[in-house]
Design a protein around this nucleic acid. Structure first.
Length: 666
RNA sequence: UGGCCUAUGGUGUAAUUGGCAACACAUUGGUUUUUGGUACCAAAGAGUCUAGGUUCGAUCCCUAGUGGGCCAACCA
């Protein structure tokens, strides 16, 4: 996959086209405009990746602009967190900017708009205004204040600014068209009175501009060439352009470039939610420990979980950019982090579910320190020493008294390799009163050259360090927890998403520092959690290794999946589709196809089938499927008529033998 | 009773804008392996939502339909 063969996404096509049409490359400028009302999540990473990625690709500046026009919801804490997260992802913004920087300019332009008769002060209740606004299917009507004089509007607006009115008494609206098919164009609100302190402007302002008025004009002030946002802002584009074109009249000399808004589909990840409001609820209700809980889809959560910036950037690149709704499977994210960590994470040995293993023919007091390779993927990673002794821990799941030959691990009477050490043979077990295995007894052999099927990881009991390991499962048990109209996303919370394990790790980990990432061999990737302290190591499981052994086992119970995703499509639609492919299929599949059509045909009504009689002659497959279906209808007692006869007649004359055969059969 | 967007293997994204539907993930099999990991090889899986049209030729253009999404906060 070389850089030059990579195809462009639709936004890049637009930019290339603009460049081809004379836009100078040095005019390219992008922005990422978060509202500082919450933490960034993996969904934002897509927007970040698109705009900053474009900046890197075209060597163009990208601004980080905080869209801070609602003092009721925004806080400095979030500004700081957002900056930290964007920087952590490895992106550099050209300027750190705030919409609130433009409050004065915006105000001046609003006054101009009033003077030009393009904006007016409305003094109704929000309920009254909502009523006049109409619905998506019904036009709105003009309100009583729509035709106030310019002088009156100017006076009122200034007094709004001066704090003479209470919240809700007046608002400023753009004067566009109350009958417009796009509801956003029905005299949208530009300013509202909000007597709240703003995290940056304090009490300087008591009127605050709305998103639509602020956002586009901020783009314009910053001379952004391409303003990229998610699909739900598509209806706003018309308003974005309206404001932009009017303001252009006031500032064309100093601000020549008109920005262009384009929209892409936001990222959805299976089994997770992306709404800031809902994520906040998880935090507030204590479902998670905070915004950076390793189960959270926030950037800070992923960071704490052990994800690398590189893995997340890779993920965003693989996800692509388009305009259709999508749900990306978490397995892609997991692939990206595994791919990255496989190359970089040092390997160590840790036992999460220990069972004692005693090597009976090994001297009681002896200990040996073996060389262990740190990373087979990285020659420069070197090696370390691991201690070996008579009593070890191995994973409980790595031993069975008896098992089939498919089980490559330790069983009685057969041999496995202990990673970096000797080959051992299972001899006997010790069990407690409940029949639970408490000790496995083995003998070892020093011939490490011989071939054995399995290799186990282990730790020496005497040398092992205790560690807390936190293993995470998905937070929600539903693939799309917030897309059910009848159920709340909170209903799908997985009660067992966190499992705390007391594990034993090799002594080289004694000085592991917060944030360090490791591969626990044969288990997965783990990092040192922020809660870790000297003497009390805490690890997070970032992700498991691919495990083709584990996949084999759950097969018998996999039956509970709904076999047929319940055909919602009408039978006739399915038949049409089957027909389309029919002639291209090998004979065996044709048989199957036909059988299916015959079955589906039972639930087809004549009225639905009849239009297909006119199918173009060249679409033989569709005609065959139609013929087969017709046969079933006739057999079930439908009467022949002129159009049926005509259809059959025509088919009998066809070049295609399959069609002729089916026609004859009727 | 409207407007806008969208439809390509299980998932996501492509197809030099009208010319043999490709890539990645996932799946299955195999080789290598002191990680049932990695790497490598291979297989299977869509004929592009439906119908009609233009064309020598349509995933791409046009029309209609169907499915999905978005739009009625003094939020962004």
């Amino acid at each position: 996959m070389s850089e030059e063969t990579k195809s462009l996404n639709f936004i890049e096509h637009i930019i290339e086209e603009d460049l081809a049409n004379g836009l100078s490359k040095d005019k390219l400028r992008f922005r990422f405009p978060p509202e500082p009302n919450g933490y960034l999540h993996i969904g934002h990473t897509k927007a970040i990746g698109i705009s900053f990625g474009l900046g890197e690709k075209y060597n163009a500046p990208v601004n980080l602009r905080f869209d801070d026009t609602n003092p009721a919801k925004e806080e400095q804490e979030y500004v700081d967190a957002i900056k930290r997260d964007v920087a952590w992802l490895g992106y550099k913004w050209a300027n750190e900017l705030y919409s609130s920087d433009y409050f004065q300019t915006l105000y001046d332009w609003a006054v101009q708009l009033i003077k030009d008769g393009k904006a007016y002060v409305d003094s109704q209740s929000s309920e009254a205004m909502a009523e006049q606004k109409g619905t998506p299917t019904q036009p709105g009507v003009d309100g009583p204040y729509r035709n106030r004089t310019v002088a009156e509007n100017l006076d009122l607006f200034e007094r709004m600014k001066n704090g003479e009115f209470d919240e809700g008494e007046h608002i400023l609206r753009a004067k566009i068209d109350m009958q417009h098919p796009n509801m956003l164009m029905r005299d949208p609100i530009m300013y509202r009175i909000l007597k709240k302190d703003h995290h940056r402007t304090g009490d300087t302002w008591c009127i605050y501009p709305m998103y639509d008025w602020t956002h586009g004009e901020s783009d314009y002030i910053e001379q952004i060439s391409h303003s990229l946002c998610s699909l739900e802002f598509k209806p706003h584009r018309e308003l974005y352009d309206w404001f932009k074109e009017h303001v252009y009249d006031y500032a064309a000399n100093t601000l020549p470039m008109l920005p262009k808004q384009r929209e892409f589909a936001r990222l959805n990840l299976s089994y997770t939610i992306m709404s800031k409001r809902k994520l906040l609820k998880l935090v507030q209700e204590g479902i998670v420990s905070g915004w950076d809980d390793p189960r959270m889809p926030t950037i800070s959560g992923l960071r704490r979980r052990g994800y690398t910036p590189n893995s997340i950037r890779q993920f965003i690149e693989k996800v692509g950019v388009a305009k259709r709704e999508n749900v990306i499977d978490v397995s892609l994210l997991e692939f990206c982090i595994r791919e990255d960590l496989n190359k970089t994470a040092p390997r160590v040995m840790a036992v999460l579910d220990p069972v004692k293993l005693v090597i009976t023919n090994y001297p009681d007091d002896k200990e040996e320190w073996f060389d262990a390779e740190n990373n087979p993927e990285d020659d420069s990673a070197g090696s370390r020493k691991v201690p070996f002794s008579k009593a070890l821990y191995i994973e409980r799941a790595d031993f069975k008294e008896e098992a089939s030959s498919k089980f490559f691990r330790l069983k009685l009477g057969s041999e496995v390799r202990l990673k970096n050490a000797y080959i051992i043979k299972g001899e006997s077990v010790v069990k407690d009163a409940q029949g639970q295995i408490t000790e496995i007894h083995c003998t070892y052999s020093t011939d490490t050259e011989k071939k054995v099927k399995g290799t186990l990881h282990w730790v020496s009991i005497k040398h092992a360090i205790k560690a807390e390991v936190r293993e995470y499962d998905r937070l929600f048990m539903d693939e799309a927890p917030d897309s059910h109209q009848d159920k709340d996303f909170m209903d799908f919370i997985n009660p067992n998403s966190l499992k705390v394990i007391n594990a034993f790790v090799e002594p080289s980990l004694a000085n592991a520092a917060i944030g360090d990432r490791f591969q626990f061999q044969r288990l997965g990737y783990f990092n040192v959690d922020d809660d870790s302290k000297p003497g009390h190591l805490v690890f997070n499981k970032t992700v498991g290794l691919r495990d083709s052994w584990a996949k084999q086992k759950p097969k018998p119970q996999q039956q509970n999946k709904p076999q047929q995703p319940q055909q919602k499509r009408p039978a006739i639609e399915v038949i049409k589709q089957l027909g389309k492919k029919y002639t291209n299929l090998p004979e065996a599949k044709q048989e199957r196809s036909k059988a299916e059509i015959l079955k589906l045909a039972e639930s087809v009504r004549y009225e639905d089938l009849q239009p297909l009689f006119n199918t173009a002659a060249k679409k033989v497959g569709t005609r065959i499927a139609t013929m087969i279906t017709l046969g079933v209808l006739l057999k079930n007692g439908h009467e022949r008529n002129a159009e049926i006869e005509a259809f059959i007649e025509k088919a009998l004359d066809d070049k295609n033998e399959l069609l002729v055969t089916e026609a004859k059969a009727i």
